[in-house]
Amino acid sequence: MDYEIETTMTLNGTQVTRRIAARTHLVDFLREEMGLTGSHAGCEHGVCGACTLRVNGDIVRGCLTLAVACNGKTIDTIEGVSDSGEAAEMQHAFHERNALQCGFCTPGMIMCAIDLVKNKPAAKREEIREYISGNYCRCTGYHAIVDAIEAVLISKQRLGGKS
């Protein structure tokens, strides 16, 4: 019986191999083993969305993903999308509108928001609210977050229209 599995994943563009305890969820692995503390564990039962990150390009709950199940997969975290600049426009929009307070939900919210831009480029406020409805924020009233995402969508639509 294997309680620890050698696991190889492409983490923020870099291939890493570690022996990981089977029971370790992806957020704990990233935080404890890789020092990537940007993904937050807010509930560890898949409700709050603070641990939202990408596996093979799709957003998932990090706390409901076993790290060993990520063998051969591509993982992107808030650190990755920040360093690559992929999230820069969204982060700027969040900053401008104060779409965060304590910042604990923010990495998950940003991961969800940039996923929305990719999948629902024409979303209106109601659809934005629906898309981020799995990400809990206790500080803001969500209004500024919706504003920020909407601003990015509008800006992209304008650019799209010009090209």
Binding site: G46, D58, I59, L64, D115, G134
Partner: peptide, 9 residues
């Protein structure tokens, strides 16, 4: 069904 991040898994 739940939310996008859940539906993806």
């Amino acid at each position: 069904i739940a939310h996008a991040a859940i539906r993806n898994a």
